[in-house]
Design a protein around this nucleic acid. Structure first.
Length: 679
RNA sequence: GCGCCUGUAGCUCAGUUGGAUAGAGCGUCUGGCUACGAACCAGAAGGCCGGGGGUUCGAAUCCCUCCGGGCGCACCA
């Protein structure tokens, strides 16, 4: 509603500017006045025009207000301050419209692909992975809310050095054969022990083992590591078979962990298939024929196929521009005889093997349907209402279509921004500029631990680290908070609260409520920070259920539900037969601005979805949900609905609570959070 | 050395494309449960928005510079 009226207002203003002054502005600023009594929209356009028209801003604003006169949905316009134009919505009309609005289903028709989670299948998921998955999943929900067709992918690097390291641990530290590893997995499964936890410790042990011993011994270990990696890449040997069953077992654990948070995937592309199906060969051909890669014949990269880096500082154009800026003469012999570009990115090594970026380019060509080859597919994991597929060399004949997306989002932490931009530049170099423009590195900062949290967990913390704001987690060192441990702790804490507050409810119901609260807490916690803020993780903050938290928002819904339960009706019923007749007086009353401001905020739903998508920032929605809950709690205290004697006012109050409930539940759903019946 | 991010209340963070008196949570202090549930609400204290300069009618926001913090910059993956 809010967004719709905003567009109507801006459109009208645009046409007035065109006819009256013959002015067209690219983007008209619009905002909300600092206080609700000033109005619902503020236009500072007069300030911008003052110079062009050689008139005082106030004068221009007055002229514009006169031109605006009346506009559908608006009650009045006025000049305020030094030249703002404030617009007031027709409150009673707006309230009726918005009560009927319900959940608007948009259809954009855009086919997008979101890749998130992408944990190396060699250890348990930790809090950093949780941030990734929660951000990605929430963004997927937002895109779907906007009517986009979204495929969710979780990339599995099952042939990389991290998996190799754990395999080294199994084969060389534990001295296990393929069948013994198989037995180990069965035993762990029987005992109800988590294989990803087992790997967490083993991975840390192997990493420490590499660093032990004499230089000769270390060299030998390094050789073992490399040989293992090569066997994984090659496939069809005992070592690669161990890697296969192990990484698959760990992957299943990851999917189970994420399912606890209501996070699902459509497709799991694996690096093993990218290798076996020779995606790279096809990409290499394209890159060579279009001159994106060139064969270096001199310098340190001699014998490699390399690509110029994005925005490389060595290009002649930039140098010239800079020289001009400084009013300096160009050096005599500039570009003419420059040697090899040592800053170029190596894509194919001199021994003929391809680097990670090379494989990534091939994979992204597939994502956009530009490779000319597809994966094989087979079903892998069953969700209650859908199936998750995995890549396979041959696969099944019948399968859904993946890839060939119009736009992609890669949820990958900010440390990977260099390699990500390499891939984008390669696409651009190949002439796929439209695709490059629709390639979004959905980057976010890491989750680190506060020194206090690290000490609490029993890790040894160096003196210097104690003074830092945060310490980076490290899978290699086994340093971090596991995702499942955090969830278990959250459920335990929520359970305690629920048990004491809801003793009369059954155990199953209490368990269910505790889980919902735990999920609400952790998802909100990961979403309340904007993407490029490092989260310094601390149990005290993460386990909080008060203040700006998920449970706070959930609690607001529970309160609203109780009102309707006691009133013997539902929010839907109240809204279905709501008319604003007789409500005008209450909506306009100075001492009841809280009612209108609640409606106004609630009506911003579509504005928020749009904003979150264009900025790729789900935190705005989390903030919105919290503020709406805050508005509702405030309203709840000021107006006692069920004892209200004035029938017309009671109707309005009920409708207000109903709208708040509807919008809170919707916002929470997009955040991946459910609202319990009681808590 | 180069690139990207970042510095806002005691702490953790918001702050739309530059706009009206810079906001929230936590913590501290004070008050509010015989009310639709207090996982709540109200109030108070707490700010040279890292420093300096510039652009602008207007700067936390844009530009320059200095200082502090973080992360990347391999023929590893």
């Amino acid at each position: 509603m809010y967004l719709k009226q905003q567009r109507i207002l801006l459109e009208r203003l645009r046409s007035i500017l065109k006819t009256k002054y013959d002015i067209e502005l690219a983007n008209l600023a619009i905002e909300q006045p600092p206080e609700i009594r000033f109005g619902d929209y503020a236009l500072p356009v007069a300030f911008e025009l003052a110079k062009r028209l050689r008139k005082a801003p106030r004068k221009i604003a007055e002229e514009l207000v006169a031109e605006l006169a009346t506009l559908e949905g608006f009650k009045s316009f006025e000049v305020a301050g030094a030249g703002y134009i404030n617009a007031h919505l027709d409150r009673s009309a707006a309230v009726v419209v918005f009560a009927e609005e319900g959940t608007v289903v948009l259809t954009s028709g855009l086919h997008v692909l979101v890749e998130h989670t992408s944990i190396n299948p060699n250890k348990a998921a930790h809090v950093g992975h949780l941030r990734n998955a929660i951000l990605g999943d929430t963004f997927v929900r937002l895109l779907r809310a906007a009517g986009q067709k979204v495929d969710v992918q979780n990339y599995i690097d099952n042939t990389g050095v991290q998996v190799a390291d754990v395999v080294v641990g199994l084969e060389h530290l534990e001295q296990l054969s393929y069948s013994e590893v198989k037995g180990l997995l069965a035993v762990l499964n029987e005992r109800g022990e988590r294989v990803d936890y087992y790997c967490w410790d083993l991975y840390a042990r192997v990493s420490a083992w590499y660093d032990q011993g004499s230089p000769e011994e270390k060299q030998t270990k390094k050789q073992i590591r490399l040989a293992t990696l090569h066997q994984l890449e090659e496939g069809s040997n005992e070592t690669s078979e161990i890697a296969k069953i192990l990484s698959t077992a760990v992957l299943r654990r990851h999917l189970e962990t994420m399912l606890r948070l209501d996070i699902e995937y459509d497709f799991l592309p694996r690096e093993s298939e990218i290798l076996r199906l020779k995606f790279w060969e096809l990409a290499f051909e394209q890159l060579k024929t279009r001159g994106v890669l060139y064969h270096e014949t001199e310098g340190k990269n001699k014998g490699c196929w390399v690509m110029k880096r994005a925005g490389g500082s060595r290009t002649g154009g930039e140098r010239r521009a800079r020289a001009e800026e400084n009013r300096q003469e160009l050096p005599e012999h500039d570009d003419a005889e420059t040697g090899p570009d040592e800053d170029a990115k190596v894509i194919v090594r001199s021994n003929g093997t391809v680097t990670y970026v090379g494989k990534d380019i091939a994979y992204h060509l597939w994502k956009f349907g530009l490779l000319g080859r597809d994966f094989g597919y087979r079903p892998f994991f069953k969700y209650p209402d859908r199936e998750c597929w995995i890549s396979d060399e041959t696969g099944e004949k019948e399968h859904p279509l993946f890839g060939g997306a119009q736009a992609i989002y890669n949820v990958i932490d900010s440390r990977q921004s260099d390699p990500q931009s390499n891939v984008i530049e390669a696409l651009r170099g190949l002439g796929y500029t439209a695709e490059a423009d629709r390639y979004t590195h959905f980057s976010y900062e890491m989750v680190a631990l506060t020194p206090r949290c690290a000490v609490e967990l029993g890790y040894e913390v160096a003196e210097a680290d104690l003074r830092r704001a945060f310490i980076e987690v490290s899978g290699r060192k086994g340093f971090g908070v596991k995702a499942d441990d955090l969830l278990d702790k959250l459920i335990e804490a929520a359970q305690k609260e629920v048990d004491s507050r809801q003793p009369e409810r059954g155990e199953d119901e209490r368990n269910q409520i505790a889980k919902e609260i735990a999920i609400g807490a952790v998802r909100y916690f990961m979403l309340k920070y904007t993407r490029n803020s490092v989260i310094a993780f601390d149990f005290k903050d993460a386990l909080s259920f008060e203040g700006e938290t998920g449970p706070y928002v959930q609690y607001a819904v529970v309160r609203a539900r109780n009102i309707f339960r006691k009133a013997g009706t539902t929010a839907e019923e109240v809204l279905a037969d709501f008319s604003a007749s007789g409500a005008d007086a209450y909506l306009a009353a100075e001492d009841a601005e809280d009612i209108w401001s609640l409606w106004l905020r609630a009506s911003k739903r579509t504005l928020l979805v749009e904003q979150c998508i264009t900025t790729a920032e789900p935190a705005y929605l989390a903030k919105h949900a919290f503020q709406l809950a805050q508005d509702f709690n405030n309203f709840y205290h000021r107006h006692h609905i069920l004892t209200e004697e004035d029938a017309a006012k009671k109707k309005l109050l009920l409708a207000t609570a109903a709208v708040a409930q509807r919008e809170l539940i919707q916002a929470l759903a997009w955040l991946g959070i459910t609202a319990p019946e009681a808590m």
